[in-house]
Write a protein that binds this DNA or RNA. Structure first.
Lengths: 229, 229
DNA sequence: ATGGTCAAATTTGGATGCAACTGTTGACTC
DNA sequence: GAGTCAACAGTTGCATCCAAATTTGACCAT
């Protein structure tokens, strides 16, 4: 992660969230100048952002001079989710082969922290105290775990593909996850057991098992998320 | 495919092939200005090209102001090949679900043409006539088949990922394939039988079978290619 | 000789301007 | 009234320019 975020990066994220939230409607046409004025920057970084969004499939070039927000059907989102599952399996397979001892220890450390947080959340919930703050910390830890697994794969291109497959669903997924965890005590716990199992498979260098666990975990997570919506 | 290729596109392709051919050595540092002067264009399109190459993993940012050609170890190329196999399986899975009748007919039509070409090549070879021209036509047909299958998947993002996984190996792969086919009569034939089987699975809408066939075919093709090198 | 510090030169990110091309609208003809 | 062509507005692509930040090299002190 670059410490200094360029204007192009900001424009990329802002336009992406604008599309995700529906602020920019599907089919609406997007111009460099218009976006530049809206974001109060020059067209140069906007062009770069639009190029990246185009590669992500979030905007489409209908003609050489007309760019518009891609019409993302729900079916396409489901398709990308399926791609994500497959990629996660691949990542796990690579991680089983390439993870270093330090990285594996870091994974366990993250899960330890997550366990502590989970216990804390349950405690506070029993006492009727607010848990929002700790729940977000828990989600952050899960995110951190995912990133750490990705790092274990030692395959930047693959990790980038995984990120790309999540571009569509990420914004609303975190929100769903937060609500789901807040409702259901056992939701997070179930997932952690599979996380532990994944780390064990990684330690054993068992790429087939790691792939299987990662795929099942991803599928299960997506299914549970879909139920909750 | 844009009818008019922008300077940025040209710069992207030129730099990419320069890296592939070793003209730009691994670890060599790349600057916008230097590349711009070398290609006789302004730095603006070069910047865009470097951004895309960075996303492809062909160049690396070592610092905020230092960009150099990524050191691609053979292991990394093998890793990407493995990713490619997985992605091909995913593409086949999607194609089985989303392919239209017209697209399926087009697939068979391409294979028919390829069969004719293969017969022609064998004929000419028996008579001691040169086959280069027809062999390249055969490879073009195989490429066309691949593209057509990708189109069947109706998942542009996934197809882009597949393309990305091939960035490293594509230049030398075609050359290897050409040599291999020229040597071995049965090489192409074996692959076509699996291609026919793939189309059958796609017609049946059997996504599991399609995925399996595509994976086995990719693995087999890569293995055979590796032998030949 | 080695390590740290400082300054100059190089480099990138961003802004602005211009030319070429495209999409559109309106008028004119059949 | 429908189709076609031309003019116009708008947009993109590229070049040039500028400022901020970083890399690099030299110089000094230890």
């Amino acid at each position: 992660m670059p410490v200094t975020e360029t204007l192009a990066d900001q424009a990329y994220r802002q336009i992406r969230t604008a599309i995700a939230t529906g602020e920019l409607a599907s089919g609406e046409k997007v111009t460099e100048r218009g976006m530049a004025e809206r974001l109060a920057i020059s067209p140069t970084p906007v062009r770069e952002a639009l190029r990246r969004l185009e590669l992500d499939g979030l905007i489409e070039r209908i003609g050489p001079r007309t760019v518009l927000v891609a019409a993302i059907r729900d079916a396409a989102i489901d398709d990308l989710a399926e791609v994500e599952v497959g990629l996660r399996g691949l990542v796990a397979r690579f991680a089983a082969r390439h993870a270093s001892a330090d990285q594996l220890d870091a994974l366990d450390e993250i899960l330890d922290r997550a366990d502590d947080l989970l216990i804390l959340v349950k405690e506070r919930r029993r006492q009727g105290q607010p848990t929002d703050r700790h729940l977000t910390a828990l989600l952050d830890a899960m995110q951190e775990f995912n990133d750490a697994v990705n790092a274990c794969a030692h395959n930047p291109v693959l990790v980038r593909m995984l990120e790309q497959s999540r571009v569509f669903s990420r914004p609303r997924r975190r929100e769903l996850l937060l609500r789901r965890v807040a409702q259901d005590d056992t939701f997070g716990l179930e997932r952690y057991t599979s996380h532990r199992a994944l780390v064990r498979a990684l330690r054993a260098g068992d790429s087939a098992a790691a792939e299987r666990i990662a795929i099942e975990d991803s599928q299960g997570g997506l299914a549970a998320l879909r139920e909750g919506s």
